[in-house]
């Protein structure tokens, strides 16, 4: 739950007065024009950026905390976080061991790759992937590591219709099992959910500010 959040980046107020609430089983779709603060919002939720004003409250198993413990969420950003020299399998198994300290079984790996139709590319080096394939490879993490909260920044970029549908299904399935998904996207994902429009929280220039300017 976030209350009256305000964020600054480079001295500029990106959004102000943002309120949201998410509980188990919620899908929140972040909308808004370019530069309206979708990524800033997601990075604030991750804990990378401090909020200038307001509070984020997470209630995990009855305990309230100011930031979401890292073992409860996964995020994917604009960059894919893949090492081009490594095969998809190496990249994916490193992600799993980094996040959970476990080694992923052969079946789990194939099942996760199958979600975005990447099975035939598992042994290939990521440097030969197309940008859409790289993006799908990055999204594989959501099928590999079990975490309650998913934070996705522009997950549909570069995906074709079939894979966008697969992503929609993955999200719908996660939400149906009590997960929370917050995704910033311009495309419809075909998942029922709440909508948070960042354009509604743009900073208002007050009369006093204008007089000063």
């Amino acid at each position: 739950m976030g209350n009256d959040l305000m964020c600054r980046r480079g001295g500029r107020i990106v959004f102000d007065g943002l309120k949201f609430e998410a509980s188990a089983g919620d899908f929140i779709c972040l909308r808004g024009s370019n530069g309206s603060g979708k990524s800033t919002f997601l990075r604030t939720v991750c804990g990378f950026l401090p909020q200038a004003h307001g509070r984020l409250v997470w209630s995990v198993g009855g305990d309230e905390s100011d930031h979401l413990p890292t073992e409860h969420f996964i995020q994917s950003g604009h960059q894919n976080g893949l090492k081009p020299n490594f095969s998809l399998r190496d990249n994916a198994s490193f992600f799993v061991s980094l996040a959970s300290g476990e080694t992923v079984s052969h079946q789990d790996m194939r099942a996760a790759a199958a979600v975005f139709d990447l099975e035939h590319l598992l042994e290939d080096s990521v440097q030969y992937f197309s940008s859409g394939q790289r993006h799908r490879a990055a999204l594989m993490r959501f099928a590999l590591v079990r975490r309650q909260v998913w934070l996705m920044d522009e997950p549909t970029v570069g995906l074709d219709a079939a894979n966008r549908e697969a992503l929609g299904q993955l999200i719908a399935n996660h939400v149906a099992h009590g997960g929370i998904v917050i995704a910033a996207t311009h495309d419809p994902l075909g998942v029922e959910g709440l909508e948070l429009n960042m354009d509604d929280f743009q900073p208002k220039i007050t009369v006093a500010d204008e007089a000063w300017l």
């Binding site: 991750c46 950003g77 894919n80 976080g81 893949l82 090492k83 081009p84 980094l98």
Partner: peptide, 12 residues
């Protein structure tokens, strides 16, 4: 540059 630093920093 490739974005994996985000993932590293979020590791437990």
């Amino acid at each position: 540059e490739d974005g994996s630093l985000d993932d590293l920093m979020l590791s437990p």
